[in-house]
């Protein structure tokens, strides 16, 4: 059963990491040529006494799709939620390190967090529709910005719902409560809500985990459509999905970024044995 791959550096890194040893991230050189939208350097985060992220160094390339993969509890959501500072809302969170969006610091005291978040859209791991109608849900960010023009709102609503592959199901019930929809519908509604504001960055935390294959396909098509105009960071447990939609893939383990490189390399010929094991499903 053991397939020997002579290219790999042999090591027992994962056990050593669990024992507290640190290794630098294996970042592929291709990434250095990319124009960074987001630069993360020396980023640590802890929930009270429990540290969830350890010394993360990475760049998120502009206009590309970056996938975060790794076993459950390794800190993918935490990293994603640090980007738009949603984690700030928890009083226990301590942050150390730097993050720069377009060269401007994300965590400087002078930063207007609301302004920052307006440039990002987020889809959460669990669907979280608001207690209001489908229509109001989708145009929530526009409402917040004080947009009143009905035709603009209608247009945005339809475009976003089409983009999230849910227009056909909702066009006749736009004024019904969003809470009455199925879990999968709610998740697509949340995707529609996130893209309605046309953010620069789209953060997606397992957007398809509650969806059937057809809807999943449509979301993947949507991501393919958005690539180029938008920068997308997507967390997923589905390796095929990561392979299909992303340009770059980052493998995380126990709060560390282990390997980060172009998706094709990560899936076909990663530098580390551990990455190979994970993406082929041998552990995790």
């Amino acid at each position: 059963m053991d397939i020997q791959n002579p290219v790999k550096k042999k090591s027992n890194r994962l056990a050593e990491i669990a024992a507290g040893k640190t290794f630098p991230t294996e970042t592929h050189d291709v990434l250095k040529s990319e124009e960074p939208l987001l630069e993360v350097s020396g980023f640590n985060l802890s929930y009270g006494a429990k540290q969830a992220l350890f010394d993360i160094n990475m760049i998120i390339p502009k206009g590309k799709v970056t996938a975060l993969v790794g076993p459950s509890g390794c800190g993918k959501s935490t990293l994603l939620r640090s980007i738009n500072r949603i984690n700030d809302l928890l009083s226990t969170v301590r942050i150390n390190g730097e993050m720069k969006l377009n060269g401007e610091p994300v965590y400087a005291p002078a930063v207007d967090v609301i302004e920052l978040r307006k440039r990002m859209g987020m889809v959460f791991q669990k669907p979280n529709p608001f207690p209001m109608s489908v229509y109001e849900n989708v145009i929530y960010s526009l409402r917040i910005d004080g947009e009143r023009n009905k035709s603009v709102l209608d247009e945005v609503c339809e475009r976003s719902l089409r983009g999230a592959a849910i227009w056909e199901e909702t066009k006749d019930r736009l004024n019904e409560s969003a809470l009455g929809m199925s879990g999968g519908q709610q998740q697509r509604l949340c995707i529609a809500r996130a893209i309605a504001a046309e953010p620069e960055v789209l953060l997606m935390d397992e957007p398809c985990s509650a969806l059937d294959p057809i809807a999943t396909n449509k979301i993947e098509d949507l991501i393919a459509d958005l690539r180029g105009d938008y920068t997308i960071v997507i967390v997923t447990h589905n390796m095929q999905q990561a392979a299909r939609v992303s340009d770059y893939t980052a493998f995380m383990y126990l709060g560390r970024l282990i390997e980060y490189g172009p998706t094709s390399t990560i899936f076909q010929n990663p530098h580390l044995q551990e990455t190979q094991d994970y993406v082929t499903g041998r552990f995790g």
Binding site: N84, I86, L89, I114, E115, R117, K118, M120, G121, M122, F124, K126, N128, P129, F130, P131, Y140, S141, I144, D145, C190, R193, A194, A197
Partner: peptide
């Protein structure tokens, strides 16, 4: 999660 959703939308 609802509050977070609203903050993430820039509220």
């Amino acid at each position: 999660s609802m509050r977070e959703g609203s903050y993430a939308c820039g509220g």
